[in-house]
Amino acid sequence: LILEQILADFVDFTDSNRVLELEEKNKQIKKEIRDLQEHFDRESLDKFNQILLNMYFDEEVEKNVNYVKEDREADGFAFSFNPLRQRLTVKRNDKVDPNQEKVQISFIPGSLARRTHMQI
């Protein structure tokens, strides 16, 4: 009953026109983001990701940092940068199910050192 009363009060105070306006604006922004993503030059983005990966696998760093060597040896290890979200996704091939073939998964590195290194 208390929850129902609170929700009823909330509805009474809500400007439904404003809510509809914001929902419409949200749809437009999502459409703009989808349009931007569709127009990215995939080849340039792939080249950028490869440059990031090459920087991460720098020979001098690999000699001194064990996890870089481990990552190089990991099957399918890759970076995928999303410019719109400014997010770097780390991927590798792995078995999600033991009875299944390896698939590429996204993961968050468990080591804080790894995460910091990737961010830099």
Rank of each mutant, 00 (worst) to 15 (best):
M118Q: 04
K27C: 11
L7V: 09
L112H: 06
Y67I: 00
K63P: 04
E73K: 15
E4Y: 12
S111L: 12
T116P: 00
V65L: 07
E73A: 15
K31G: 05
A78T: 02
Y56V: 00
Q86H: 11
Q37T: 01
S44N: 08
V19Q: 05
K63R: 14
H39W: 06
N54V: 03
F77I: 00
Q5T: 12
E24W: 09
M55N: 12
Q86I: 01
L3K: 15
Q119P: 02
K91T: 02
N54H: 07
N54F: 04
G110W: 04
F10N: 11
A8V: 06
S106L: 03
N64L: 11
L7Q: 13
E62N: 04
L1V: 13
L45I: 07
F81V: 00
A74I: 03
K27P: 03
I29D: 02
R34Y: 05
E32I: 06
G76R: 13
L53H: 04
V68A: 03
T14E: 06
S111G: 14
S80G: 09
L20T: 05
E62T: 10
L22D: 06
L7I: 12
E59A: 15
P98T: 03
L112K: 13
N26L: 08
L1M: 13
I29C: 06
L53Q: 10
D12W: 09
Q119T: 06
Q28S: 15
R92A: 04
L20I: 04
A78H: 10
V65W: 00
P109Y: 04
Y56A: 01
M55V: 11
N82F: 04
I108L: 10
A74T: 12
G76T: 03
N26F: 06
D15T: 01
L3M: 10
K25T: 08
D58W: 05
E60A: 11
E70F: 11
I29V: 14
E73S: 15
